[in-house]
Design a protein around this nucleic acid. Structure first.
Lengths: 140, 140
DNA sequence: CTCATTGCAAACGATTTGCAGAGAT
DNA sequence: ATCTCTGCAAATCGTTTGCAATGAG
């Protein structure tokens, strides 16, 4: 019970990929996909980007969100905390809103169904103002 | 403006796949994936199942929902109308709730952000009662 | 030296597509 | 006969994984 950290896992050794990926995220590019990250880091292979992101997520430094049909986007966990994503299924626009907007639904789902909403891992899908307007079956 | 239905598309000809797929859905299996559908129809290729489903959706007979990480599930549009899906990200359980549960959020998003929520195309993700309980980091 | 980390290619699951042939009207 | 539909194989997209080489401690 002294050296045995039950869930400590392997000893982490800083390699090039992890550092570069974190640097990019810290540079504040906002939500970005693994592929876009790899595109900015010619020295780092896409698969290494995914692996680096996985480790960083495990450490709680990074978090990812699935935006509707598109690929997942990554971000510093601290930046992701207070917001939720509304993604337009038509144009892909990502509308970021304060997480508080979901509190009433969250409470209701939890009380009535025991379901704990995780609105920060998957975006909520719909249509943005512009696309909603355009979608009203061709006025006329 | 007589014979020219602006968006009528190609003349549909009933083929084996489309009929079989629709039969299965009418048989009331509830939400089912394209692959499961294909598995029940040895005479129909998966790709034909997807194509049949696409046509049926275009006609408004069928609708599909994306359940979190898993594949999309298909259902008769009329059966899908009144419900929303809460999917557990841990065990995959699909909790079906009346669509009314989302009305307050829907109204708020529309009023405050002009965003039209489409809660029937993508499930809302979280943890079911059992998994939520189990997730509270190993009590003890 | 040892073990984590990386690169690369190949595997993956879900879905789509090109093409030639079978089938419906 | 015409034009849609189907089967099959191959391609796609996003992501994961096996394996051997590299590198950090």
């Amino acid at each position: 019970m002294s050296t045995g950290d039950s869930a400590s896992g392997p000893v982490r050794r800083a390699g090039r990929a992890r550092g570069r990926v974190l640097d990019e995220l810290v540079a504040g590019l906002g939500p970005i996909t693994a592929e876009d990250l790899a595109a900015r880091l010619p020295e780092v292979h896409v698969s290494s980007v995914y692996r680096a992101l996985a480790v960083l997520e495990e450490e709680g430094v990074v978090a990812h969100v699935h935006l509707g049909h598109g690929p997942a986007v990554y971000q510093l966990a601290e930046e992701a905390d207070a917001v939720r994503h509304l993604v337009c299924d038509v144009c892909g626009l990502d509308v970021v809103v304060p997480s508080g907007v979901f509190s009433p639904l969250r409470r209701r789902l939890e009380r009535d169904y025991g379901f704990v909403l995780d609105a920060d891992h998957f975006a909520v899908v719909g249509r943005c103002v512009a696309c909603a307007r355009a979608t009203r079956r061709h006025p006329g």
